[in-house]
Amino acid sequence: MKLLAVAALALVLAGCGESESYDEKMARTCGTPAQAYQYSKAAVKSHLKSPSSANFPGSVMDDAVEYEEVNRCTTTIRAHVDSQNTYGAEVRSQYQVTISYDVFKDSWSYSDLSIE
């Protein structure tokens, strides 16, 4: 009985600790490079003349896709997109974009997008 009371007290005290820190939550819940790649495609499409014509490499594991994890929740993606230009001709453009995931807002954002 005494052991049960000690175990219950330990559980109560463990629950009274501080909530998870920002760094702890970031380390645990940041997205994967594959998720960052999917978001990068959406970001690029939003800047194309004909987003419905966009064709990207299949996955982040494709040789045509490079990624660099800048920090725990930020990844830079470099790849290409084939899409129609203003005149309807299909062109290949190289792009680079930095994708970030905010664990507290549960949202993705992008910055430094360049399409050439």
Rank of each mutant, 00 (worst) to 15 (best):
E68G: 04
C30K: 08
S40T: 05
N71G: 08
N71R: 10
R28E: 10
A14E: 05
E116V: 08
T74P: 00
G88I: 05
Q38E: 11
S59W: 03
K45Y: 04
A36L: 06
T32K: 12
D102V: 07
Y37L: 01
A43P: 01
V12Y: 14
S111Q: 15
A89E: 10
C30F: 09
Y39G: 00
Y101C: 01
E18W: 07
N85V: 06
V97P: 00
A34V: 05
Y22H: 14
D102K: 08
S46E: 07
T75K: 00
Y87Q: 12
S53G: 12
S52E: 14
V65R: 01
S93K: 14
L13Q: 02
M61A: 15
S40E: 03
A36H: 04
V81F: 07
V70I: 15
Y110A: 12
G15H: 05
D63A: 09
G17W: 01
A7D: 06
S53E: 11
E20D: 08
S21W: 04
H47V: 03
H47A: 10
Y87S: 13
D112T: 12
A14N: 08
V103T: 15
L3T: 09
E68K: 13
S19E: 15
E116T: 12
S21Q: 05
T32V: 09
P51R: 10
N85L: 08
E18G: 13
D102M: 10
A5K: 13
A8E: 10
A34L: 08
T98P: 00
S52F: 09
E18C: 08
M1P: 06
H80L: 05
V81D: 02
A43K: 03
G15P: 02
T76M: 09
V12F: 15
I99P: 00
Y39T: 02
A42R: 09
Q96F: 02
P33G: 13
A36M: 05
R72F: 02
Q38S: 11
R72N: 09
E20V: 14
S50I: 06
V12H: 07
S19Q: 15
E90S: 11
A64T: 06
Y22Q: 13
A43H: 03
N55E: 11
F56L: 03
D106M: 07
P33W: 11
R72T: 11
S53A: 15
E116N: 14
Y101G: 00
A27I: 03
A79G: 07
A27Q: 10
L4P: 01
V6E: 07
A7M: 12
C73K: 07
A10F: 12
T86W: 11
